[in-house]
Simulated assay, not measured.
Amino acid sequence: MINIRSAVLADLEALSGLLDGYRQFYNQPSDIGAARDFLRQRFGQADSRILVSENSDGNLTGFVQLYPGVSTVGLNARWTLNDLFVLPECRDKGTGRALMEAVTQLAREHGVARLILMTQVENERAQQLYESLGWQRNTAFYGYLLDIK
């Protein structure tokens, strides 16, 4: 059974390992200390919402992280789903779907008008999950990045 809940500070160590795995998935070098510091900052500043999945033994198997924002044009709240990660051995078992469904429910409960996410063009597995849950690919806007160094 998959349990989805809000992350708490007591999850920091296990969640740091998941975040490190997520970053490695995106070809970043492993740095568990930096992952821990980053998450400690998120908890301290309360600037994101993190949901975790846990198995029947209480071990964390995945997480999703949301960053709140607003839309001037829509005059409403929007959350950016920035991170979704499930341990490789827990994939194809409904964990990612459960996390995504929990995010949608949480957004509804908080009156959030829109959820937004971006994924790599090559990440077809994630795209299939998102589209199966009713997410629509944005074809109206181009995304741009500017790295500030």
Rank of each mutant, 00 (worst) to 15 (best):
E122Y: 11
Q41S: 14
G21V: 04
P68T: 05
I50S: 06
P68Q: 02
T119D: 06
L39I: 11
R125C: 03
R23M: 08
D83F: 07
E101R: 08
G62H: 00
N123L: 11
C90H: 12
I50R: 03
Q127R: 15
L115F: 05
A113R: 13
E122P: 03
T104L: 11
S16N: 01
I2D: 01
L115T: 10
V86S: 08
L145V: 11
L87W: 03
L115K: 04
Q41N: 15
I32G: 07
V52M: 04
R91M: 15
A10P: 00
L19D: 00
F38E: 01
I2S: 02
L133H: 04
A140I: 11
Q120D: 14
V112I: 13
L99F: 09
N59D: 11
T72E: 04
A98L: 03
N123T: 04
N55D: 14
A34N: 06
D37F: 02
E124A: 10
L75V: 08
G44H: 09
N138H: 01
G58P: 08
G21T: 05
S132D: 14
R91D: 09
A98K: 07
L19I: 05
S53E: 01
H110D: 09
Y67G: 04
A7N: 02
R40N: 13
S16P: 01
I2M: 12
K93I: 05
Y144T: 02
V103S: 00
H110F: 03
D47F: 04
C90N: 12
R49F: 11
A98R: 10
A113G: 11
A46T: 10
A10V: 05
G58Y: 07
Q28R: 15
E13P: 00
T61N: 11
E13W: 01
N27G: 03
V70N: 00
G134E: 05
